[in-house]
């Protein structure tokens, strides 16, 4: 209630709740705690539609749109003893859901799918290990970094409805990779952030996996996590967040920043800085691997420690909408739905779809 008072729905000259319009609500009757939410394209009976995927620790559910902005559960995959900790979005992929399971870190990646041959839903193991970072990229590819005591492995795998195939090793940097992001419009380019605050650029095709360049992400900022990257006019623009920043540090109440890198020289310059909305106390919660924040195109969203959800226009460096915590409780999850929607989830398993 205190947090709700600190964040009135309409902040003077600030972000407005009206920028987000509630479209529908998915209520999970099982009462299980929501861990993650995502969207997936699903094709059935010759019809392709956008479906919502919700995850609890022990199961993952697929929801289809019904009439009157309602949603119905189509199927629930029951998982084993290892808790589900994340849904890994797979852009431009149909009828496939990828999930990460583990305790504190990812120990297993699984593919959830519908087999038309067997007319049944099933799941298959993609990878096990001490997995530090994972991302789904276009053309049904999954890239992950994992660590043994001796070395770090960075791998790309091609996913299909039959499971995983065609593994390609990427050259690992010396430091642990903390996050990956594909480069929009460049099918063979991938960027990553490392524990030593570097930006790494790879060439990802099924032939080489070269490490092209390592650049510093900025000496004044603590460990950066990459969310998205775009190549334009010979520069590489990377959206970064700083999950471990403290308000007293130089980056203040920074949520996201967009940095332009010149990959030829390794030099960089900050382009826009997106701060927490006015009137908001406490840092945002953004953790790599267990993302409480999300970036789509040039929009950022994150759950704040106050229990509100904030949305930023990252190109303008401006907070454009705030969803205050309601009487039903604090927000726990904020994810962009494919298209222009935002999915916001509460701990009780309720997920709300907003039009943005």
């Amino acid at each position: 209630e205190d947090a709700a008072e600190q964040l009135p729905p309409v902040l003077p000259d600030g972000p407005r709740e009206e920028n987000l319009q509630l479209v529908s609500e998915l209520k999970d009757s099982s009462g299980s705690c929501a861990v993650d939410v995502s969207t997936v394209w699903w094709e059935a009976d010759g019809c392709r539609e956008l479906r919502v995927v919700t995850a609890s620790e022990s199961s993952v559910s697929l929801w289809e749109p019904l009439a009157h902005d309602c949603w119905g559960k189509v199927h629930t995959w029951q998982l084993g003893e290892i808790p589900v900790i994340q849904i890994i979005p797979l852009p431009d992929t149909c009828n496939l859901v990828c999930i990460a399971l583990g305790e504190l870190e990812i120990g297993e990646i699984r593919l959830l799918l519908y087999s038309s041959e067997a007319d049944s839903f099933k799941h298959s193991l993609v990878k096990t290990g001490n997995i530090k970072a994972v991302v789904g990229i276009k053309d049904q590819r999954l890239v992950s970094s994992s660590r043994t005591l001796q070395e770090q492995q960075v791998e790309m795998v091609l996913l299909s409805e039959m499971g995983s195939k065609d593994w390609q090793t990427l050259m690992p940097p010396e430091e642990t990779v903390t996050a990956f992001a594909e480069v929009e419009g460049m099918r063979e380019a991938l960027v990553g952030t490392t524990a030593a605050n570097s930006i790494v650029v790879w060439s990802v095709n099924l032939k080489t996996g070269q490490l092209l360049r390592k650049m510093n992400a900025g000496y004044s900022y603590p460990a950066s996590i990459c969310h998205r990257a775009y190549s334009d006019s010979g520069l590489l623009f990377v959206v970064l967040s700083h999950p471990h920043a403290k308000e007293s540090e130089s980056c203040g109440n920074l949520a996201f920043r967009v940095v332009a890198f010149n990959p030829k020289t390794g030099r960089s310059r900050g382009v826009t800085f997106s701060s927490l909305p006015p009137g908001c106390v406490g840092r945002q919660v953004l953790e790599a691997g267990y993302l409480e924040g999300d970036v789509w195109d040039t929009s950022g969203a994150a759950v704040l420690t106050s229990g509100a959800v904030a949305v930023w226009d990252l190109l303008q460096g401006r907070c454009v909408a705030v969803l205050p915590p309601g009487p039903a409780g604090h927000w726990a999850l904020a994810r962009w739905a494919l298209g222009t929607g935002l999915l916001a989830g509460r701990h009780d398993g309720t997920v709300c779809l907003y039009r943005y």
């Binding site: 460049m186 060439s203 070269q210 092209l212 010979g234 590489l236 010149n262 382009v271």
Partner: peptide, 23 residues
């Protein structure tokens, strides 16, 4: 961003770095 900030910019940076990097 100006070129003086970031050094000489190449539109073909990806191809050029791919050709320079060890296979």
């Amino acid at each position: 961003c100006s070129e003086s900030d970031l050094g000489p910019i190449s539109l073909n940076w990806f191809e050029e770095l791919s050709a320079e990097a060890p296979p």
